[in-house]
Design a protein around this nucleic acid. Structure first.
Lengths: 226, 226
DNA sequence: TGCATCCTTCGGTGAGCGTCGAAGTGTCGC
DNA sequence: GCGACACTTCGACGCTCACCGAAGGATGCA
């Protein structure tokens, strides 16, 4: 009893809303109009859907001029969407190409706006092992190492979102680094081309340079490069 | 990726199916009839729902004699249900006062018209442990003990609602006693002032008298009194 | 074999909701 | 200010789907 999952599930059950939500899974905030186009419905229809999602607490809205940007509210929503997607994809995996893409996503992908998958978990473990992270905070040594990499730790700390939360990864059943710091670090790794975006929507590939760098800097093991 | 989450979400979006799925979350395999009673629908309706769940790959069926047992298919389904439940339960808890109330509600509260929360689960477990309940029915000894307390067991049995169903509790992930008997028993406990209603809408407080009584009569342990 | 139990299929009914066009509100640029 | 734009609200239409009663297998027990 107590927690009625039906209403929340119903919000994800409509194809139009599902398309919007998966689009927002990228972590970016999208305007109502963009979401309408993306889902292939008229503006009124999209507005009605977004109102429901807002009311249900699945998204939050930021008004900016005459635009209204929507984004997922909280990492838990992203987790459910990811897990749901995995279940939905289960009977599929028909072509060889699809299953190869699935393996790539397990290896490394973006979750919201930070690194997830096996690579994300390995990075997180390595940072704790080396004493760069402890108790949800960055240690002095961690801050030095991250700063040398080009990560704006202070800026991340001032951000309005949680600083360095653990983000639970269902494919790995392990935590990886989320929040402002996770996003900032991932941004730097992409700039430095330790990571590059793959062809599939959220896929990430660890480059050879990245593999060496991650191993040297964060003691990450078992990373598949390229 | 690009997995269509809508169809799977739709399977969880119906209240009847959601009730069935959460009931199966216990891990046990339940017969179609049990699920029908649990969800409060007719056998044909339940059958239709189960067919959909089966087709959608959320449950699997095991035929055994004339019974057909259903259970969740794969741990991933359970994971989604759990995460969904966490989201669904989210919206509350803002002020300190609210969170204190939330703790009280976790301890004991009414669920519809019967006792839930830790106290409800403890009561249910105690009754089974002492052999007052078995297989969804009240034993002869149970009926004697309840009768001495002032519970009209016969009246509850004649009621038009289900007699003594297990009611799944989300905060505890365990069952407590629902139905006509659960309501009747809770009514008596309130009359006898073993329980009193708190200030928040559904809150219940176990009195010191109630703690002693529940422990002596039903072997309930770990009850916070007053 | 006969009967009860468990479950399913079939047919018909009703409610809920996603859809869009038209009109209304607020914001930016000239 | 006056259109242009982004978004929302309103009203009406249509379709899907959950629901039940009755009937049809399938299984177990005497």
């Amino acid at each position: 009893m107590e927690a009625d999952i039906a209403p929340v599930a119903a919000l994800m059950a409509d194809p139009t809303r599902a398309t919007m939500l998966t689009a927002l899974l990228s972590g970016r905030a999208l305007a109502a109009g963009e979401l309408a186009r993306l889902a292939g419905v008229s503006a009124p229809t999209a507005s009605a859907h977004l109102a429901k999602l807002l009311d249900g607490g699945l998204v939050e809205a930021v008004k900016q001029g005459r635009h209204r940007y929507y984004r997922l509210k909280g990492h838990e929503v992203a987790e459910v969407l990811e897990t749901l997607a995995r279940i939905s994809a289960r009977p599929a995996v028909r072509s060889l190409r699809q299953s190869s893409q699935a393996r790539q996503l397990e290896e490394a992908r973006t979750c919201y706006d930070h690194l997830a998958g096996r690579a994300g978990v390995a990075l997180f473990d390595g940072m704790r092992e080396r004493g760069y992270l402890a108790g949800g905070e960055v240690t002095a040594e961690g801050e030095r190492v991250l700063g040398r990499l080009g990560v704006d730790v202070e800026g991340a700390r001032r951000a309005r979102r949680r600083f360095a939360p653990e983000c639970l990864d269902w494919t790995e059943r392990r935590a990886h680094l989320g929040g402002a710091l996770g996003a900032a670090l991932t941004g730097v790794l992409l700039e430095e081309e330790w990571l590059v975006r793959g062809r599939a929507p959220r896929s990430i590939v660890v480059t050879e340079k990245g593999r060496r760098g991650l191993e040297a800097t964060f003691a990450c093991k078992e990373l598949t490069s390229h």
